[in-house]
Amino acid sequence: MAQMQIPSAGLREEPRRKVRWQPWAKTALSLLMLAVFLFPVYWMIRTSMTPVTALYQNPPQIFPANPSMDAYLDNFVRNRDMLRYIGNSFIIATGTMVLSLLIAVPAAYALARLPLKGKALIMILLLSIQMLPGIMMAMPLFIMFSRVGLIDNYAGLIFADLIHSLPFAVITLRPFFLGLPSGLEEAAKIDGCNKFSAFVRIILPLVKPGLMTVAVFCFLFGWGDFIFALTLSSSDTVKPLTLGLYSFIGQYGTEWNNLMAVATIAALPIIVIFITMQRYVVGGVTSGAMKD
């Protein structure tokens, strides 16, 4: 009896007293943690708006007194080099996204819904490819590409980026196809579709959220790539922004406001995509990493 009463007494009091303030205390706590955790991002933006004179203050001001946009004007308006890098990054990231989707979508569909031999083997192969160190691929690709003229070439960089985005895309998309009801293709066939038109007209529209997630991540892979840009491109004509930022470190050393302005611009598409596509992003993190 006594045992029964204690928890029920607790239950009666708890919700009334705690519900009011405790969730909001957690909100406040998480706001604080987030502020600490994302401080580096804040510091990047703050530094980019710090005038050179205030840059080498000790101790530095956490909130700048008079923010300036000089670093942005210098690097993106007066000097146009960075604009070319941004353009290159967009071409490479978009190319990676489009090509990954074109190749991965039918493959993921086949691996999920069509009777094929060797499916398990292909899945294991895809999982293993994700584990390959970039440098292990970069060196043989460098030699291969320098023979066929793919060095300093958008296509070369896009192909290289696909090494990681393609397996990710297939592994992420397959569960979306698996989740569809099983009679779809047969129904489509009765309605006069063949295998390919059923896939394009009936199946694809149903996995739109999956396609969005994969598109977002493949774009980010292409945008963020560094090692292939470093090893497979040498001229400014195809260099992406990541590599531009790196060579900028060497050139301008300690002009941190300029460096951080470039870094902020390089981070901008990520932040925009992040805010507008949040729900697709969270899904992509887990699906690519785990088994289906």
Binding site: L38, W43, L220
Partner: peptide, 22 residues
């Protein structure tokens, strides 16, 4: 808040490296 923390993971590593260097 949960998804905002993801920002650090999604940032291109080159940017992260540069920020920490600074």
């Amino acid at each position: 808040f949960r998804s905002l923390t993801l920002l650090s993971w999604m940032l291109p590593v080159v940017i992260t490296g540069t920020i920490f260097q600074w």
